[in-house]
Each structure stands twice: as C-alpha cells, then as structure tokens.
Design a protein around this nucleic acid. Structure first.
Length: 409
DNA sequence: TCTGGGGTCCTAGGACCC
DNA sequence: TCTGGGGTCCTAGGACCC
C-alpha cells in the first residue's frame, strides 16, 4: 500500500489563467440546503443505487455508484433521499448564471462543473485569486452551495487542482511551479487514466506522475497505445493546448434503462424501447437538432455490452423514424438477447446537426439552377458547420426549397 | 465494488471512391 | 489483369468521466 503526500502550492504574484469550478457533492448538497434536517448527517441521493453522497457519508465509505444495501452496511445511519432532478437543474442554472456574470468565457462540462477563462480579466477585474474568491462567495451567498475552485495554466491542471482543493476550497497553481505540484500525484490523477490504464501502468512499476513523465513518448505508446500514450506523455508534462470553448454542442443524445435479468420479455423491452425513443426524440427537437445515426445499446445478463447502429441518408427529428430504426436493430440482435438475457436497453442519436441552419438555408439556394455542390458549399460557408453532410439530404429537402434568385454568389 | 444514466473520445476493420 | 496509396464514412467495441 502506497501513500501519497499532496503538496500545496502557494500562489505568488504570478497567477493562472484557467479556473475549474466544481460544486461539492452536488445533489447531496442541494438536498442539505433545502432540508435543514439533513445537514451535518450522512446523506445519499438515490434509490437502489447511490447517485451522490454527502461528505459525512463519503467519510464513512459511501461512494457512487454503490448499491443502497452496501451503503447502508457501511453507514447504518445513512439517510437516503430520492433524487429531485428539477431542483438540481435549477441550482445548476443559478450557479452558471454567476459563472457567466464573472467571465464571458465559460465552458460547462456537466451539471456541476465548468472551466472559466479569466485571462482577459486581469486588467478589468483583477487576478485569478480575486475572481475565484468572488465566485465562491457569490455561489455560497446567492445559491447556498459550496464550490471548489482550482486554477492553473492548463485546463487539465486546473481540474486536478480543484480535485485537490475539495471540499469547499480554492487551490491555485502558480505558473512555473506546475510540475512541482503535479509530479508527486498518483497516475490516477491524469485525465484518462481509469482502472484499466492504471493497472497497466502499475504492472510496470509506475505509480506517480513523475514516474510517467520520466518515460519517453514511444515507451508510453508501447504500453497503452498511440492515442492514450501520447496523451499521457503530454499531460505528465502539463502540456494541454485545449482552450476554454464557449457553447460546445452535444455530439449525441441518449437515454437508457436497466433492469434485473430475466425481468423483461420481448413485449416489455419493446415498450421500453418506444419510451426511450420518445424521450430522445423530444430532447432532440427541444435542442433544435436533427440526427442521422441511431444506436441501440444493450447490456446482457453477463454485463457485457453490445451496440448496433444505423445511419440514415437524411437527418431526422422524428420519434417515429428513430423508433423504426431502433426496432429494426433490436430485431437483428433479438436471438442473441434472448439467449444471454438482457439487463439494459438504450437508444442514442448522433451525427447531430443544427436544425435551424437547415431551415434557414432553405430559401437561400435554387436547386434547379445551381449545381448541388455549390449549394452545399454555400450552406456550409454560411453556417460554418456540417449543416448538410450529403447531397442526398439536399435532394430530399429541395422539395421544400423556395427559389431566391441571386442569393448565391 | 456486483455495477445508474448521461456523455466523450479512440481504435480498428471494411466498404467505397479516385 | 494486377497492383497501389490516400481519403471518407460507417459500424462495433472499449475506456473513461461525472
């Protein structure tokens, strides 16, 4: 058993540009905020499985995702409350409003964390520490939640810093002292190192980031593959060129459901499939996007997973089309599912494009008088993304096109 | 630790085109 | 008739993150 000493780096006059803000034990904290009887005691949010645990519960070994029985064994006085997703969404929105008020460059990562670029604010507002303190104070005063903030010169290290600063902390890594902070940490601190990769690194005697950093890229690539190897090498040297990106779009939308083995027959599975397709379709339309690929996700009795996918020539938003495709995919794997037993069914759509771009583009070109390629190029240039990815799509929508002469140059 | 539901990214192979 | 490189798109699986 190894132990690691976490070194605290005190920030000096030089201050980092990127903050990572992470709400502490988010769901559980919202419950404790809204119900005073839950404060100071171990609380888990969930039902059957723990979705979030308060710090009092974490201290007794309750983690996510742990099943409720195990959690109660570890913590007999655990108070388990049912999730209230709407309350968490509302709290998240209020917190993100504060983030946006503090800096225009905010990149949400999930319901409870975000990167914030403060590089442009030094002159206007002040250094990172001052901004981070203000942010923490406002989130506590205005929303009633504790947020931990990490700051560093890269996104990756800012995230590591916030993890090290938890709970209810602020940890800034002074520029120039990044490796001093990073290298003593366990390899698991590196973004992308989960159980499998950690095991492979441990097998070769690598336990700390410093030990990974001492290897050259080729050695790491030989251990864990091209992508992950290069990635690990870069992160171990705090090389992470990613910028904080505003308004990133989802690449997929999905919904899934699990159930005990043997519980569901074909009719039940089909009902669940229709329900998940309906949820996915609704969210797709709400987000003003269209999708071309439908993926059916299954988990069998042995917890092995399988996916089956199909791609339409033209994008759709309709529940019916999604459901037809998913039902057809289910048909093809049903013998396998019957043989092995199912424990999960899910549907996801991907290959997303903004719907409004297609709608807005319709009046812009004249399919009869312009070559399709030119029209496609024009739309792509106008909207700056793969708003239409195939001539087939264009041919399909051209029925609805209004001709506006001279609109293509 | 007997395993939720929402995602992201990478890899590898095959089809297909020039 | 055979051989080739480069590129894109699609499917399937897997690791990882919160």
């Amino acid at each position: 058993m190894r132990t690691y000493v976490l070194m605290t780096v005190i920030d000096g006059p030089e201050q980092p540009d990127i903050l990572h803000a992470d709400l502490d034990a988010f769901y559980a904290s919202v419950e404790q905020r809204d119900n005073p009887a839950l404060r100071g005691i171990p609380v888990a949010v969930g039902g059957g499985i723990v979705l979030a645990a308060s710090y009092e519960a974490k201290a007794l070994g309750v983690k996510t995702p742990m099943n409720e029985g195990e959690a109660r064994r570890r913590c007999p006085h655990l108070k388990v409350v049912a999730p209230r997703m709407q309350a968490y969404a509302d709290a998240s929105r209020a917190v993100f409003d504060i983030f946006h008020d503090v800096s225009p460059v905010v990149e949400g990562l999930s319901i409870d964390e975000a990167f914030i670029d403060v590089s442009g604010l030094r002159r206007l507002v002040g250094p990172a520490r001052q901004i981070a303190e203000e942010l923490r104070r406002r989130v506590l005063d205005e929303v009633g939640l504790a947020v931990t903030v990490g700051g560093a010169s890269t996104k990756f290290l800012a995230k590591v810093a916030s993890a090290a600063g938890k709970p209810d902390g602020l940890l800034l890594v002074e520029p120039g002292r990044e490796l001093e902070f990073l290298h003593p940490l366990p390899v698991e601190a590196l973004w992308g190192v989960g159980p499998k990769t950690a095991e492979r690194l441990h097998e070769r005697g690598l336990y700390t980031v410093a030990e990974v950093a001492a290897l050259d890229r080729a050695q790491l690539v030989a251990m864990v593959g091209q992508g992950a190897g290069g990635h690990l090498h870069a992160l171990a040297h705090n090389q992470d060129p990613r910028h904080v990106v505003v308004g990133r779009r989802n690449r997929s939308i999905g919904s899934q459901r699990s159930f005990p083995r043997g519980r569901c027959g074909r009719a039940d599975v089909e009902a669940m499939l229709l329900d998940t397709c309906d949820r996915v379709g609704r969210r797709l339309r709400q987000s003003n996007q269209v999708a071309r690929t439908v993926t059916l996700r299954l988990r069998f009795g042995d917890f092995k997973q399988a996916t089956r996918a199909t791609t339409f020539p033209q994008a759709t938003q309709h529940t019916n089309a999604i459901h037809e495709a998913a039902a057809e995919l289910l048909n093809t794997v049903w013998p396998l599912a019957e043989e092995r037993g199912l424990t999960k069914v899910g549907v996801a759509v991907s290959n997303l494009d903004p719907d409004d771009a297609v709608q807005m583009a319709l009046p812009l070109f004249a399919p009869d008088s312009q070559p399709l390629d030119a029209a496609v190029d024009h739309i792509r240039e106008s909207f700056g993304h793969r708003s239409i990815s195939r001539a087939a799509t264009l041919a399909h929508i051209s029925d609805h096109v209004q001709v506006v002469p001279g609109s293509i140059t």
